[in-house]
C-alpha cells in the first residue's frame, strides 16, 4: 500500500472531524443552537442580532476558535520539545515553560501586594498578564536551553524543568500568603484555564503570535527530522545545530507562552497529542506529524471544551481538569494496546 495515499485519506477524515466538532462545539452550551442558526448568524446585521446570534458571534465562535488554536499549538510545541530533547516525556509543562508563565502571571496579579508600587501603576489588564506569561515562559525556556548545552544528560534537563516547577509554586505560595483574597482568587481562576474569555480583538493578537510560532515550527521541519538521528549525526549532515535549536525554542515559547497567557496553563495536551498522533500515523516524519498534530490537537481540545460546557446546564467545568480526565486515559489505553512509547 502506498503510504502517501493512506495519509491523504486520514488527513481528510481528521479535517472533516475538526469541522464537525467545531459546529457541535458552537451549537452546544447552556442553550442549544441548531446548526442552521449558526450559518444564518453570519449573514445577520450586527446591530440587530437576536440573542442566539449574539451568543454565537461574540461568545461561542471565539471560544471554538480559541480551542482549535490552544489544542493545535500545545500539541505542536510538545512535538518540538520531544524531538529537540530526544525524550518522549518532554512537553511544555514538564520543561517548566508553563511554570514560567504561571510565575509571570502570579507576579503581576499578586506581586503588587508584596513589592508594592511597581505594578500598581500598571493596570492588571489581560495584556499585562499576556506579556508577563510570555516573558516568564521565554525566560524559563532560555534557562533550560543554557543548562542543556552544559548538561548532556537529557534526564537531568527534565529534572531541572521539574525543579523550576517547584521553585515557581514555592514563590507563588509566598506571594499568595501576602496577597488579598481577591488577588488569590483571580490567580486560581487563571490556573483553571479558560477558553471562553477572549474578545475578537484579543483573539486576533493571539492568532497573530500563534501564526508566527507556527511559521517557525514549519521552518524547523527539516531540522527536526535531522535531529531524529541525534545531534552528532545532524551536524554531520550540515545542520547548524545552534541556529536550529534557537528557532525551535522560539517557536515553542511563542506557542506555549501565548497559549498559557491567553487561556491559562492547560495541562496534558502538549505531552499527549504528539503520542496519539504518532500511534495513529505511525511515522516520525515531521512533514506529516506537524499538520497531523495540528488536527489532532484541535479535535481533542474541541471535544474537551464541549464536555466542559456540560451541555444544557449553566455550569462550566475547568477546562484544565477535563483535558487530563479525558486525555490521560486515552494515552494509557493507546500505550497498553501498542506496548511501546517511541518518538
Amino acid at each position: 500500500m502506498n503510504p502517501q495515499k493512506t495519509y491523504t485519506v486520514t488527513f481528510l477524515i481528521l479535517l472533516l472531524l475538526v469541522v464537525l466538532l467545531f459546529l457541535v462545539n458552537v451549537s452546544l452550551g447552556s442553550v442549544s443552537i441548531p446548526f442552521s442558526d449558526i450559518f444564518n448568524s453570519f449573514f445577520a446585521d450586527a446591530s440587530q442580532y437576536t440573542n442566539k446570534e449574539y451568543i454565537i458571534q461574540n461568545y461561542r465562535l471565539p471560544k471554538a476558535l480559541t480551542a482549535i488554536l490552544v489544542g493545535s499549538g500545545l500539541g505542536i510545541s510538545g512535538l518540538l520539545m520531544q524531538t529537540l530533547f530526544r525524550n518522549p516525556l518532554a512537553g511544555p509543562f514538564v520543561l517548566g515553560i508553563t511554570s514560567g508563565a504561571s510565575l509571570g502571571v502570579a507576579l503581576v496579579i499578586m506581586g503588587s501586594s508584596v513589592i508594592g508600587g511597581v505594578f500598581t501603576a500598571v493596570l492588571i489588564s489581560k495584556w499585562s498578564l499576556v506579556i508577563a506569561a510570555s516573558l516568564g515562559s521565554f525566560i524559563v525556556l532560555l534557562t533550560v536551553l543554557i543548562v542543556s548545552s552544559k548538561v548532556r544528560d537529557t534526564m537531568a534537563i527534565l529534572i531541572i524543568g521539574l525543579m523550576f516547577g517547584s521553585i515557581t509554586s514555592a514563590i507563588v505560595s509566598v506571594l499568595s500568603y501576602f496577597s488579598s483574597a481577591e488577588e488569590l482568587q483571580q490567580y486560581i481562576f487563571w490556573g483553571f484555564g479558560s477558553l471562553g474569555d477572549l474578545q475578537w480583538n484579543e483573539l486576533a493578537v493571539f492568532a497573530s503570535i500563534y501564526a508566527i510560532g507556527l511559521l517557525f515550527s514549519i521552518a524547523s521541519i527539516k531540522a527536526l527530522n535531522t535531529l531524529l538521528l541525534g545531534e552528532n549525526y545532524a551536524k554531520s549532515l550540515g545542520l547548524d545545530i545552534k541556529k536550529s535549536r534557537l528557532i525551535i525554542i522560539i517557536a515553542t515559547s511563542l506557542l506555549a507562552g501565548t497559549i498559557t497567557a491567553f487561556a491559562g496553563p492547560i495541562a496534558f495536551i502538549g505531552l499527549a497529542i504528539p503520542h496519539i498522533t504518532r500511534l495513529v500515523f505511525n511515522t516520525a516524519n515531521h512533514k506529516i506529524l506537524i499538520p497531523a498534530v495540528f488536527l489532532f490537537g484541535a479535535i481533542i481540545m474541541l471535544i474537551c471544551d464541549s464536555i466542559a460546557q456540560l451541555p444544557t446546564s449553566d455550569y462550566t467545568l475547568p477546562i484544565n481538569a477535563i483535558t487530563s480526565l479525558i486525555g490521560a486515559p486515552v494515552v494509557i489505553w493507546l500505550l497498553i494496546r501498542k506496548r511501546k512509547m517511541v518518538f
Binding site: 527539516k222 527530522n225 531524529l228 538521528l229 549532515l237 504518532r278 516520525a284 512533514k287 517511541v342
Partner: peptide
C-alpha cells in the same frame, strides 16, 4: 552512538542522508 529515534523507517533514515542536498522542507 545509536540514533535518537528508532521510529524512522529504513527508507526514511537512508533518505535523511540526502539532507545536505534537499530544499528547506526536505
Amino acid at each position: 552512538e545509536t540514533i535518537a529515534s528508532k521510529n524512522l523507517s529504513v527508507f526514511e533514515l537512508i533518505a535523511l542522508g540526502r539532507q545536505p542536498y534537499t530544499n528547506w522542507v526536505g
